[in-house]
């Protein structure tokens, strides 16, 4: 057999296996049940517009708050971890190791219930949803801190030396020279963090929330009980993709744009 024939045969059989597997999956599925339980168009229609103006909106708002809070606290922790003074490094390390080691669900639960029980004065505006949100910020900050620290350390030493040799103070060197380059370097992993946070807002359900505070997952669960049908889960899933896909595309575009300055 000629090598080219063998190659064509091999590729052809790969396609055959793929098509066969998909066909087997589609044929073995119980379409009647699927259509009834998950793809009920009438039920899907009733979810709108609430699923957008309340649920998707809240998911986006919670994500924005958790990411912004995580960035700020993460930056602080990263700088502490690189501080010349020992105790700052120890505190940052202890924090990061603790919150990276705990399940996000547990931390959110803790801030929604354990902390209010322990401290009677704990009463953040926005009720239990925002208590849970604080838990989410604390967890994301731990991951983001490590990402930012890696980014800062990835900026070549010559950059810092150049800035210092020009007489710039350490603070200005960090703000004007090191951090802008560090954030360019870590744009891809930060995007990852952002997408993870979008999905982790679904864990806020454990905090329990008022009707107007519901995000996509809680909304879908409530609708599921209300209609006795699983279609809302599918719709909510699609909504998550509607949020995440354009976002990752946008960041990819941003990255290409920034590459001109590297």
């Amino acid at each position: 057999m000629k090598p080219s024939t063998r190659r064509r045969l091999f590729r052809g059989s790969l396609y055959v296996i793929l098509v066969a597997a998909i066909a087997a999956l589609l044929l073995s599925a119980n379409w009647k049940e699927i259509k009834y339980n998950f793809l009920d168009v009438e039920i899907a229609k009733q979810l709108f517009p609430a699923i957008i103006i309340t649920a998707a909106k809240n998911t986006v708002v919670y994500t924005a708050i958790a990411f912004a809070g995580g960035l700020l606290l993460g930056l602080l922790l990263a700088l502490m971890k690189l501080a010349p003074v020992g105790p700052y490094r120890w505190i940052a390390t202890a924090y990061i190791e603790t919150f990276r080691g705990l399940p996000a669900l547990l931390v959110i639960f803790g801030f929604a219930f354990a902390v209010p029980t322990a401290f009677a004065s704990w009463d953040p505006p926005g009720g239990s949803a925002s208590s849970g949100l604080i838990g989410l910020i604390l967890v994301s900050a731990a991951y983001i801190a490590e990402t930012i620290r890696a980014g800062i350390q990835a900026v070549p030493a010559g950059q810092r030396e150049a800035a210092r040799s020009l007489g710039m103070a350490p603070g200005w060197t960090m703000i004007s020279v090191v951090l802008p380059q560090a954030f360019r370097i870590i744009t891809p992993p930060l995007t990852n963090e952002l997408v993870i946070i979008i999905k982790d807002t679904s864990l806020l359900f454990i905090a329990g929330m008022a009707l107007g505070d519901r995000e996509l997952t809680v909304f879908a669960r409530d609708s599921l009980s209300q209609f006795g049908n699983s279609t809302p889960l599918i719709v909510a899933g699609l909504m998550y993709l509607v949020i995440t896909l354009p976002l990752t595309q946008l960041v990819a575009k941003l990255e290409r744009h920034q590459n001109r300055g590297r």
Binding site: P156, G158, Q159, E161, A162, R184, R262
Partner: peptide
Amino acid sequence: FQQFNLFPHL
């Protein structure tokens, strides 16, 4: 410097 060390983001 030998390696110039210009600020690449500016």
